[in-house]
Design a protein around this nucleic acid. Structure first.
Lengths: 135, 135
DNA sequence: CTGTATCCTCGTTGATACTG
DNA sequence: CAGTATCAACGAGGATACAG
């Protein structure tokens, strides 16, 4: 059965594929481009918005804010806004967030260990393809 | 230091952010939308193209082929084409691929366990936001 | 400082049609 | 059966400007 249609054959929005795999709805946030890096950084302790911006190189304000809001909504990140001027907002991991951070960090570590292997595989594959383009 | 520029200040292509985090180059394939599902399915044993197409609901031929090629190139999946008519191609996990599959599967399981918690957090967040739109 | 709003580009995806 | 080619649409993401 296709995910693109329900029993009645009506089309579904593309992103509802995840309905068949609820874990993806959680995973896609913690494994997102900036989610991983933010979680990893917060594993180190509480950080301000601008600290995270610097620590996570290359992230735009928009994407950092969006990522933090998503993680906060999911209950992974705790946001504490201090009513001072200039504004100061501290971000930290919740218990569940720390769990998430450790999980993705472990996966990242595993991936990092396999980087040489994977890159070697890619080169071998590309070499093979170049040698016999049509087989 | 921003990832968007190198030491000389020249702009870099957007996706080169990953250069600072090589593990992402591996992660983005195994944690991709269809990559997770394909790996999970192959954890079950060897499958043909059309079997995978059915098993992984909602995937288009194009994306399945693309996903399999990527995973093969990375050395996670072994592709065996039988020279028969009609064509028959078997896909299976390599040892490294099985490692990858187990890793992401473990993460998926963890995520699945947390789904109720996360969804509750989202509802609470949304309720809070609806109650005080501007604070 | 900590965001929000807008515009705009670019990549990814899906549908469709076609080939070996 | 197992893909490849092409096209169109969509959405994520970045740049910029501005607000609280």
């Amino acid at each position: 059965m296709s995910v693109s249609e329900d029993a009645g054959g009506r089309p579904r929005p593309p992103d509802v594929y995840a309905a068949d795999c609820p874990s993806r709805l959680v995973l896609e946030h913690v494994t997102s481009r900036w989610g991983v890096l933010v979680l990893a950084e917060l594993l180190d302790g509480t950080h301000r918005f601008s600290e995270l911006r610097r620590a996570v190189g290359g992230v735009s304000e928009k994407m950092l804010a969006q990522t933090l809001q998503t993680l906060e909504r999911d209950g992974f990140v705790h946001r504490e806004a201090h009513p001072v001027i200039p504004p100061r907002v501290d971000y930290s991991l919740t218990p569940v967030g720390e769990e998430a951070a450790r999980q993705v960090w472990a996966l990242a570590r595993w991936a990092e260990d396999r980087v040489p292997t994977v890159f070697a595989a890619r080169e071998a594959y590309d070499r093979e393809k170049a040698a016999r383009p049509r087989v």
